[in-house]
Write a protein that binds this DNA or RNA. Sequence first.
DNA 1: GGAGCGCTGTATCGTATGTTACGTATTTTG
DNA 2: CAAAATACGTAACATACGATACAGCGCTCC
Lengths: 275, 275
Amino acid sequence: MISNIAELIADRIGAMPAGERRAAQTLIASYPMIGLKTVAEFSSAAGVSSPTILRFVARLGFQNYPEFQSSLQDELAAQLQSPAIRTLNPPTPSGGMVSPMLEATLDNMRETFRHLSDKQLADIAARLAERRGKTFLIGGRFTDPLARYMAAHLAVIQPDVFHLAGQESMWRDRLIDMGKRDVLVIFDIRRYQDSLLRFAEKAHQRGVQIVLFTDQWLSPIARFARHVIAGRTAVPSAWDSSAALFVVAETLIGAVTRQLEADGARRIREMEGLR
Amino acid sequence: MISNIAELIADRIGAMPAGERRAAQTLIASYPMIGLKTVAEFSSAAGVSSPTILRFVARLGFQNYPEFQSSLQDELAAQLQSPAIRTLNPPTPSGGMVSPMLEATLDNMRETFRHLSDKQLADIAARLAERRGKTFLIGGRFTDPLARYMAAHLAVIQPDVFHLAGQESMWRDRLIDMGKRDVLVIFDIRRYQDSLLRFAEKAHQRGVQIVLFTDQWLSPIARFARHVIAGRTAVPSAWDSSAALFVVAETLIGAVTRQLEADGARRIREMEGLR
DNA sequence: GGAGCGCTGTATCGTATGTTACGTATTTTG
DNA sequence: CAAAATACGTAACATACGATACAGCGCTCC
């Protein structure tokens, strides 16, 4: 049963021509506000012509544009009157692979942060913000993108940030550059990679401070780590989820940025200028 | 400080003549829906004439009726898009920078999935699971790690998955391999990258089906995309958050894996054997 | 490779909508 | 109580909005 326009669109968007699909997508993206504006505004926001918008609402079964708008308004009114029933997508009773996945992910994040004190995060952020040494980042088979993501941001606000890519032998050569003043951020979740463990051990021996992102069962690298962040990874899927670690990473990025605000702001402006 | 129209009305209703006061009361009674309808409807609902309605909105300080309506819509949009900000006192128990960041991120995810139907995700998953053509993935400056993350997983369960890395000129050379049967997954959030847009356009011309991960303001690439996923990115930080898109990506990975279960399981076992 | 179909945008049209002018009613004030 | 000022509605107006006809284009399917 289709109860609201968003569902109606989702149901029929597959059978729409390109232009009308663009209309549908723009409407969904900022649902339902664009639909309350005039046809001209809607059309220019979607990058199509006015008639395409009208054909779009006609395809949804409405006689004319005002009728379509009234329908949207009724929906809004219903939502506003009962804030509890704000779920536009009804709780996905049967078909849902979405809902369980999302719920599990949200739980993972709450759990992860519940076991993570502000102080701990602040300490790590402070360590990363210290401009004494270099910062290296590396990850495992599936988590290396997280290392890259973090490196991409940190590199903008401070110098000497390096993501270690490529072959194991290449990282090892970088060990020569690492020392007590440096920080190594490692992402390692099951199945833990021996190559990372070996690398972490050698870095540890050289006095490098290790910040470890891992799962709740803790990678063996925890043994060498100065700071350990344990994220929840269980979701109803064949794969583990790195989403919680991703959010921790973003939080850290934000915290480091704030600490480096004075320097960082100037640096960011400078970079913008270079582009 | 008067921040919304309802307060403004409450502030001035005392100084209004009878007719306009009836208009004010009618609007407050079913705020703000009546204000979104036409002057004629508003007036008859309030039991006054059209000019009275216009004088009423003029007294509130608006130049004309459309301006008044836009203001109401902006207010609605602000309410709908940030459910968290509605809570005037955000819980912030520990006071740190963690909680606001986490709360915003969780809201972003809920909001992102609220605008994303199961059907839409299922369609995209089905398209990715089709083993007719190749799958290419690419991202922007900060989102390319998401492309890598997704590519790393998809590549395990099916062949012909390629992450496009390196220089723009290198991707362009890969265009020659792309055709109607292929899928291109693009991650592009503000500030949208011209290079990606150019690439998307050329791929589109070759008939490649584009799946776009973007923010709620929609990258211009949406123009060429077969499927658009609009994630929420706003967080209390100097950076935008890609966490919601990350979770959508994980959800998709899970869905594709499920669809390819028969083939995929064998493939995974085979891969394990190779390691 | 050609014919047919469907999609899309431009330009035009009719109309519903917001706006304004003016006359009447109602209240206010000296 | 009278006179003025303010408020309100009727009716005419102009504009901007939605609707439509039509032609060009690309796409699919023989």
